[in-house]
Each structure stands twice: as structure tokens, then as C-alpha cells.
């Protein structure tokens, strides 16, 4: 469904990605794990069109999408819950979710999807009128994922949903990520520093280090891989 081919991305003179290639199969959860500064966020930002690649291709559903502006990529069915959540702190929870549905005009469908998001994250329903800036970190993460779902995407990009969140909430969020993948048959590309968590819920994984793909395998195999265990799973 999504394929990156030899993608190179640079910020000014600093090259963040050195020709990475990866594939995300329809219906799967694929994870990209790697330490801080490995280039995970850059990868997602490039797919979403916030950063333009220096070279390489991004094909999605058989079409080349690199170079398209961000808003057109959303229109094609790729939504992102960005690193640091980036919820609109000045907007209410409901308005944030409506922003997610910005490109849609099907009222009935939007209402149905709102109900779905509330069923996945009941806490959002309780706080629907609240300003998003007053939510806890975990709740904001739920909102960021719910907001991304509201565009009715075919591919969901998640950037470190566990970042800075209490372990208990992280568990809930990851359970819901799996549920969303199953119930909506939604393809997910999950980026995580917490390799343990990520590999547990994924089908396939890539290990990224300083802008290069180091390893790739099924998630189960990666969890058994001694190198991965040593470097990312705490031995």
C-alpha cells in the first residue's frame, strides 16, 4: 500500500535519512523503531508532505506522492498523529475532532465516526466541550489519534504515541491501536522509541539507526533477535 524507495531527506546541510526503503502492506501494523534522532519523525513528516525529500520515491496505492503538499496527502487517505500530539490547544475537544474531518462533507458519516472515536476513547466523550489544552498528556494523545481517525484514512501514521505518557494510559492506547487496526481494517505505520511495546502489537518491523535501515523482519523475529534485544529491548 505504501512504499518508500531510497528516500533521502536533509535539513539544510544535515542529512537525516540516507536512502531508506520500506514497505507497508495493506491491513498490517508496521513499526519503525529506533533511538532518539534516528530519523523516525522525519520519515513520517516526509510521507505526510511536511518535508520534501531530496531524492527517492514514495508510492502509495500505486501513485507517486512525494512532492505533494500536506493537505493533498490527507485528501488521499493518509492521516498522521504527530509527535508531541500537536492538538489544537485553543480549540475544544469536539472542534479538534471536527478539524480531523476538515475535508469531509458527509454529515452522517462524520457523526458515525465521532461515535466510533468516543467508543474507542470514552474519556474524550466526557471532555467533549473542554479546551484541548486542559487535557492530560494521555488524553491529548487519544485526541490526536481520534482526530486523525476522523479523516477516515486508509493509512494511519502514529508518531510515538507512548511519549511522555503514564504507563497505564500507554497500555490502553496501544490496546486501542490494535483494536482500530482490526475493526476498521486500517493500515498503520507506527513509529516508536519504545521498541518493546511497538513490536508487541506489530506484524512487521524496521530498525532505524542514524538515518539508515539496520534490520527488518517480522515483529516476532525482531523480538527474538539478539541485536535488537540488546540495543532496544533492554537485553
Amino acid at each position: 500500500m505504501l512504499e518508500l524507495h531510497e528516500l533521502t531527506v536533509a535539513y539544510g546541510g544535515i542529512t537525516a535519512l540516507h536512502g531508506i526503503s520500506l514497505r507497508v502492506e495493506q491491513g498490517s501494523i508496521v513499526t519503525l523503531v529506533g533511538g532518539n534522532g534516528a530519523g523516525k519523525t522525519t520519515t513520517l513528516r516526509t510521507i505526510s508532505g511536511l518535508v520534501k525529500p531530496k531524492s527517492g520515491r514514495i508510492s502509495y496505492d500505486g501513485a507517486e506522492i512525494s512532492g505533494l503538499p500536506a493537505h493533498q496527502i490527507v485528501a488521499r487517505g493518509i492521516a498522521q498523529s504527530p509527535e508531541g500530539r500537536m492538538v489544537f490547544a485553543n480549540l475544544s475537544v469536539l472542534e479538534n475532532l471536527r478539524m480531523g474531518a476538515y475535508l469531509r462533507n458527509d454529515k452522517a458519516g462524520i457523526t458515525k465516526d465521532l461515535d466510533y472515536v468516543f467508543s474507542v476513547f470514552p474519556r474524550l466523550k466526557e471532555r467533549v466541550k473542554q479546551t484541548a489544552g486542559t487535557l492530560s498528556g494521555g488524553e491529548q494523545q487519544m485526541l490526536a489519534i481520534g482526530r486523525a481517525l476522523m479523516s477516515k484514512p486508509k493509512l494511519l501514521l502514529l508518531d510515538e504515541p507512548s511519549l511522555g505518557i503514564a504507563p497505564l494510559l500507554t497500555k490502553t492506547i496501544f490496546e486501542q491501536i490494535v483494536a482500530i487496526n482490526r475493526e476498521l481494517k486500517l493500515t498503520i505505520l507506527l513509529v516508536e522509541q519504545n521498541a518493546n511495546l511497538a513490536l508487541e502489537v506489530s506484524n512487521y518491523g524496521y530498525v532505524l539507526e542514524t538515518g539508515r535501515i539496520l534490520l527488518q523482519d517480522t515483529a516476532a523475529a525482531l523480538r527474538e533477535n539478539p541485536k535488537v534485544r540488546e540495543a532496544y529491548l533492554g537485553g
Binding site: G49, H71, V74, M86, F88, L91, Y102, S151
Partner: peptide
């Protein structure tokens, strides 16, 4: 709503499909 969203965070607004 889009104006308010862009005011808060232009990149996040673009990720919602806002031109």
C-alpha cells in the same frame, strides 16, 4: 475553525487537510 487551527499550529492544520 481553520483560521483558529492555523493560528495555533500551521503544520498540524496542514495535517488535517487544511490548505
Amino acid at each position: 475553525m481553520a483560521i483558529r487551527a492555523v493560528s495555533f499550529n500551521e503544520k498540524a492544520a496542514a495535517l488535517m487537510g487544511v490548505n
